[in-house]
Every structure is written in C-alpha cells, then in structure tokens.
Nucleic acid binder design. Sequence first.
DNA 1: TATACTGTGGGCACTTGTGGGCAAATGTGG
DNA 2: CCACATTTGCCCACAAGTGCCCACAGTATA
Lengths: 145, 145
Amino acid sequence: MFLGQFAYHIDSKGRLTIPVRFRAALSSGAFITQGYERNLIVYTTESFHVLAQRATKLSTTNPEARAVRRLIFGRATEISLDGSGRILIPPFLREYALLDGETIVVGAGEYFEIWTADAWDKELGSVADPDTNTRRFVDFDLSAG
Amino acid sequence: MFLGQFAYHIDSKGRLTIPVRFRAALSSGAFITQGYERNLIVYTTESFHVLAQRATKLSTTNPEARAVRRLIFGRATEISLDGSGRILIPPFLREYALLDGETIVVGAGEYFEIWTADAWDKELGSVADPDTNTRRFVDFDLSAG
DNA sequence: TATACTGTGGGCACTTGTGGGCAAATGTGG
DNA sequence: CCACATTTGCCCACAAGTGCCCACAGTATA
C-alpha cells in the first residue's frame, strides 16, 4: 500500500526518483498514465491489468468507448526503475502534468500520484482543510470502526 | 499490448517509422485500414483475423453492416516492416488520413492508430480534459480496483 | 519490339539525442 | 559529530530516426 507524500526534483530528461518505500512494489514492473486532475498516476502491473482488461472489452463502434481506449492505452506507458531508483516519464505525460522542477509523489493506496509542487499545494488547500474533510467523511461514510 | 504515443515524420514516399516497442508484435505481419475518425488503424495479423471473422458473420441485408464490411475489407492492406522498422502506407490511406509531415502513432491496446499531428491535437483536447474523463469513467464504470 | 526515362521502394549510413550508469554532494539518523 | 543512505548532476555510449543513393520495374516513345 502506497502511503505518504515525498518531494523530488525531476531532471532535464524527465527522470524522477521514486520513494525508497515504494520501490519494492514496482520491482515487477509498473504503468504510468495521466490522472483525473493535471497529475499522473502510477499503477502496479496487477492494478493496471484490471483496468486494461475492462477497457479492452469496450465496443470499438461506440465513439465514447474509443475515446476511453485512447485515454487508457494511448496515454499510458510501461515504466521501470533504473539503477538509482528512478523512472523515466515520457515527454507527453510530462507536458500534460506540467512537470518541471519540484515534483511531489503522493501515496493513494493501490496506486500513487505525481504532481507539480504548485498543483499539489492547491490540492492540499482542499485536502488539509478540516471542515471540508469532515464533510467528505460524512458523505462517503468512512470511519475506522 | 500497444501503449503510449510517439511522433515521427512520414517521408515523401509515405513511409512511417514504427515505435521500437511495437515492432516485435508486427514481425509476423500486420494490416492497416482506415479508422472511424480521420485516422488509420494498424492490427496485428491475429487481431485482424478475429475482426475479419466477425465482419464476415455480419448480415448482408443491413446497410450499416455492409458499410462496416467495406471499411474493413475494401480499405485494408497488408503491410510489413522494412529493414529500418518502417511501414509503407498506400496512397489512398495517406489521402484519407491527410498524412503529410508530422505524424502521431498512438497505442490503443490490441491495435494502434495513426494520426496527423493536427488531428491528434484536436482529439487530445477531449482525451486530456479532466471533467470529460471523469464523466466517461463513471459512464463506463471503469476503475483499477 | 527495344530502349530510355521516371518513379517507387529497399537499404545503407550518418547524425543526434536519449537513457544508462557513475560519482559527488547533501541530508538524515544514530 | 560521524557514517551511511539517497538524490541528482554529468558524462558517454549506443541505438534509433531520417535523409540519401541506387536498383528494379513499369510505361511510353521511337
């Protein structure tokens, strides 16, 4: 399970250090794709296969289904860790998430996300607000019990 | 599985470089045909045979079915990789997709697509829009879990 | 019918940029 | 305060993309 948030600098070639705690989970391969906001999502091989299998079953004659396939397959790439624990993020994903300089890696359970520092700060304004969270926990009926 | 997007220049003879990662899948032959949008679709031999078999079974009395058959059989061509990993795209398909200059190759799982840079940019406006995608994921009930 | 010319496609080679790896510097934990 | 683990900058080699040359085939003209 991916937990916590970590800050790194992406280099000029688009390589990003992965938190040491996350590396073991990626040793058997991983997939990166664009997220729902202006961020990226990294899935383990198992998680991505679930998603890919569902997308493969969609009809190709439905235009909306074709757009979803383009999103899931066309905007994703398999990645692997180099000797220094980095991943190489392809240019089109770097552009999408506006990655350049300070970059935040955020655990999200089954997957983790990659944000620019600026975008994460804005998101954090919402995530860290006690009142907003109280409402969310009520909305989704979440509690530890 | 074909993943990711790649940019190349089609040469004056209609030859297009195929991403290195895609080449092994095409080594035993491939088929190219026109897509549903102003793009082209490349299938592996296996995928094309599945598609062809399904198309063969379609009713000949349904006008829509006849149109699909014409698309799949009438506008398809077998292609192969040359020594430099390129395919030769026949003129009628080049004209259909308006290919000339910068060309984008986009993975879509079982097959991949070929777009002009301009056409892909327009499509990307929809594919990369967070709000549209959130709706699509809900519509199709997709998630990695 | 034969020859010459044109255009298509195969293949080679060069250049460029990507990515792997090493090493230094910085930060953290004991 | 010291030592070890980590990050990130930099260098170099290899591979990939694209331009260019040549051969073969098809067509037209003499």
